[in-house]
Simulated assay, not measured.
Amino acid sequence: MILRTGQRVVFVGDSITDCGRRDVAAPYGNGYVSLVRALVDARHPELEIEWVNRGVSGNTVRDLAARWDADAIAERPDWLAVLIGINDIWRRYTDRPAEAVGIDEYERTLRDLLRRVVAATGCRLILGDPFFIEADRGDPQRADTDRYAEVVAGLAAEFDAVHVPNQAAFDRVLAVSPAKRWADDRVHPYLPGHAVLADAYLSALGLR
């Protein structure tokens, strides 16, 4: 158990984190953040954790940088959970390739953001891998995603962060089931896919 009584856990990221938290499913969203919160609170009510969701749909690491002061540093987290990179990659495979973020910029920007928030708040970090719900590692978008996930794993080691291997979690279920069972676009999970993510977060935090 690494969470402590009364700590503030802030999640920041893109649509996978957002999940309607700004409107129909305020304030936690209806995805993995809500599931992690519910399960931790149910199993450890004595902790009285404060949960905050600051995901914004469509974000890349560039967008995260633009709102970092307000949505990460100003929240004064004890733990900051970051899941970003899926759009940075995916845009290359859509009709918006100019908005894709190359891997060098991604790593440089994310490292800078993490340094800033740790220096300003002293928080601990939880870094989740970007993922693509596709079992074929030869698929171009899957191959790119694996490269970006390696960046996140490296940053987790660099910052002594909790590392959440989201792609590995999906690979486990994809070994025995089709991608369509988890998401229609291989990016935005159905609720069972969010449960796969929540399970990965709980395991990484030692809460299973």
Rank of each mutant, 00 (worst) to 15 (best):
Y106Q: 12
Q7C: 13
L114P: 00
T109A: 10
R96T: 09
G122Q: 06
L83K: 02
G58Y: 15
V12N: 10
A143G: 00
D185S: 15
A98T: 06
V56N: 03
A200D: 13
E46Q: 14
H188A: 08
R37F: 05
A65L: 07
H163A: 11
D139K: 13
I49E: 01
R43K: 08
W182S: 11
G55I: 02
L155Q: 04
G31P: 03
I49C: 02
D104Y: 03
V10E: 06
D78A: 14
P45R: 14
L191I: 06
D104H: 10
S177Q: 07
T94L: 02
I133L: 06
R22A: 13
F132Q: 07
H188L: 12
L127N: 09
L205P: 07
I133C: 04
S177Y: 07
F11W: 11
L113M: 02
L191F: 10
A120K: 00
D18W: 00
Y190R: 12
Y28G: 00
L191Y: 14
R116S: 05
L205T: 10
G13W: 05
D63V: 08
E50Q: 07
I16D: 00
I103K: 05
A100N: 04
I73K: 03
V61N: 00
L80I: 10
V117Y: 04
D129G: 03
W90M: 07
D88R: 09
R96Y: 05
D199E: 15
F159M: 06
I126G: 02
V24E: 11
T60S: 13
V118R: 15
T94Y: 01
W79K: 05
G55T: 14
I84Y: 01
E99C: 00
T94Q: 08
N53D: 12
D136G: 04
S203F: 09
V36S: 09
V152L: 11
I103G: 05
E50V: 12
A198K: 04
L113Q: 10
R54T: 12
V56E: 12
T60N: 06
R4F: 00
R67V: 08
D112A: 12
E134S: 15
R208L: 08
V10D: 02
R186M: 05
A65N: 14
